[in-house]
Structure formats: C-alpha cells, structure tokens
Nucleic acid binder design. Sequence first.
DNA 1: GGTTGACCTCAAGTTGACTTGAAGTGGCAG
DNA 2: CTGCCACTTCAAGTCAACTTGAGGTCAACC
Lengths: 136, 136
Amino acid sequence: MKLIDIGVLSEQSGMSTSTLRYYEDIGLIQSVGRHGLRRQFDAQAATQLALISLGKMAGFSLDDIKEMFAKDGAPQLPRAELHRRADALDAQIRGLTRLRDALHHVADCPAETHMKCPKFKRLMDFAARAKARRQA
Amino acid sequence: MKLIDIGVLSEQSGMSTSTLRYYEDIGLIQSVGRHGLRRQFDAQAATQLALISLGKMAGFSLDDIKEMFAKDGAPQLPRAELHRRADALDAQIRGLTRLRDALHHVADCPAETHMKCPKFKRLMDFAARAKARRQA
DNA sequence: GGTTGACCTCAAGTTGACTTGAAGTGGCAG
DNA sequence: CTGCCACTTCAAGTCAACTTGAGGTCAACC
C-alpha cells in the first residue's frame, strides 16, 4: 500500500494542506502514520476527500458529512435518516436543474424584464412551491 | 398590486425577518416603500427570494447571486459567463446525483466497509475524476 | 387615547470553515 | 555534512452570512 505526503494528497484532491490538516484535526479524515513528523496518507483518504467534496457541494456541514460517512465509510446515522437525506438531495437536484434552466434563460431571453416573462415565471413558481414545502 | 409586511414575506419565503433586512441592506432584494416605518414588499420580492434560495443551494455566494440576477432579473454578467455557470451547475448536478446514490448505497449495502465495495468505489471514482477536472 | 405587538436602527456578537504566522524539525540531494 | 524545503504545531486572524440586543416607533384594535 503506497503512502503519500500531505502535499501529494493536496495536489490530488485540490484542497490546501492547511485544509487537510484541519480536516484531520476535526476527525474528518485520518492519516495512517508518520514518516519522521510528516503525516502519511493512503488511497482511502483520497476517496474520503472525494466524498467530502461532494457533500460540501450539496451544502452539508462538515459535521453532517462526518456523521454520514464515518472513517470507514460506515455511517453513524440510521438507514431511514440516510434515505431521508438522499430524498432531500433529490429535491435539491430538481431545484438546481430549474436554476440551470433559469440561468440559460436569463442569458438568452430578450424580454425587457425576466420577471414578466411567462417562461421565467413558470421556472420560479416551482422554486417558491419547493420552499414552501420545506417549511412544512 | 398587493403589498406585504416583512413578517408575511418571511413566512412565505421561510427566511427570518433579520435575514430579509440584511438582504435589503446589501441590495439583494428591494422593498417598494414604507407604511409608517414598515417596509412594504411586493410579489416580485418573493420571486427573487425563490431565486436566491436556489442560488444558495447551488453554493453561490450572495455577491454571485446579485450579479446573476439583478433587481429586475436582468443579469450584470455577459451571456457567455452565464452559460458557463449553467454548465458548471450541470456538472454539480451530476455530482449530487452520485452522492444521492452513494447515500442510498451506504444505507443499504451490507458490506463490512464501503471503501471495499466495488459499487461504492465506482461511484467515488467519478467524484475523484470530477475533482481533478475542476483543477485543470 | 392607551396598550400592544410587529416593526424599526445600529452596533456588536456568533458560527463554520478555513488561513496565516511564527517558530521549529528532519529527510534527502549535492 | 550541510543546506534546503516541505513538512510540523499552535494560537490567532479572517470572511461570509447572519443573529442578537438595546432602545425606539407607530398603526390598529379596545
């Protein structure tokens, strides 16, 4: 099993070395040992960082991510909760799809003000309804 | 045109009144006048908040959102940039879809450690590659 | 016309997620 | 064996996005 320095992991993951040290501090990733005083990481760390990166994209806090994907990838949350989060993610994906469409729309639609464009309004009505649901 | 108090808009949008005041401070939303010293908002504010809410979901900063959807919905950014952001959003949507699948997977897969499950690894390999691309 | 409660302002505080700086260590190429 | 440079620790600083608190205002109902 090939071990790597923090600098290499930083390069691979696109996160700064200070971020990686911070993540280890708070227990989000683990180094497998030291070479002198240098942390050594294995391939699993890169996988975990990929997961963390996705979790951040989804707007989860580092604490949330820690709960959902513990050290070995085994979650500390009950199955039902994980499915619930996956479903919420699904709703978010639908929202982002609307936002993507809205962005393309405002880029191209020649209407004076988008707020009056029926197509744009239709996109946004969805967002309003989704928000209302989240409150319930 | 029916006007509403900040409390009503807060209820409709699911954002606290202090947040709405803050958003007006930084120019993200606009009130259309005052009733006594109370801000009055119209329907457009609710639409804008829906848009802001989606933008936040996507991980955009409030400044980004301000640039992409100015007061009237007319962007302050060139068309090409907006399309570029929409495409980035598309990549993000694909990432979140993988994350959703990964969540369902860790909830259900009986494997000792997910890091060794081939299905899980396949999901994560994508994430690693996506991350690498973002660096380029 | 008095009380109430939702609103107001403005400054300061909080939280999450890092980043920076100073001072030190140690593996390795020359 | 010497110098370099990527690493180390730990405390303090930064930034975005709000939230809180103190003290004040006023439209509407009783």
